[in-house]
Amino acid sequence: MASDLGDLYQEVILDHNRQPRNFGDLPGANRRAEGFNPLCGDRVTVSLTLEGDVLKDIRFQGSGCAISKASASMMTETMKGRTRAQAERLFQEFHRLLTEDSGAPDAASLGKLVVFSGVREFPIRVKCATLAWHTLRAALDSAHGIASTE
């Protein structure tokens, strides 16, 4: 496999694509949003239980490419137990990781999410990697939101 393809489809991404974590509906969720990528028609729903300022639990549903599914799956793992402020910071860091060549993002805070740095070489796929993240933001911003990558 060409090295940039190898960087994109890293084993951990393929694993989350095959077996997404926190997949399914979240009974008792008090926040929910649907995300939509008009380019491919993919949809994702992010449901969460927000207790005060803390994302107590989070799950996602939907269909999508390996990048969007793995990104959603790893996002839910990372977000569980975070505060809203922490979630927003992670969103910013993750976005920088995907789009900025210089200004190395805070790798420590992103943890294993740095596997998505390979997406940078595939600009058209950035939307796939950020769909669930935009959707999470919409869920946090309103009780019933629709997020779009456009």
């Binding site: 940039d4 393809l5 994109l8 095959r18 491919c40 999508g64 490419c65 390996a66 990048i67 796939c128």
Partner: peptide, 13 residues
């Protein structure tokens, strides 16, 4: 088990 976008990206390369 493979989304068309992933097929498209790999074929593009």
């Amino acid at each position: 088990g493979i989304h068309p976008h992933d097929i498209g990206t790999i074929l593009d390369r």
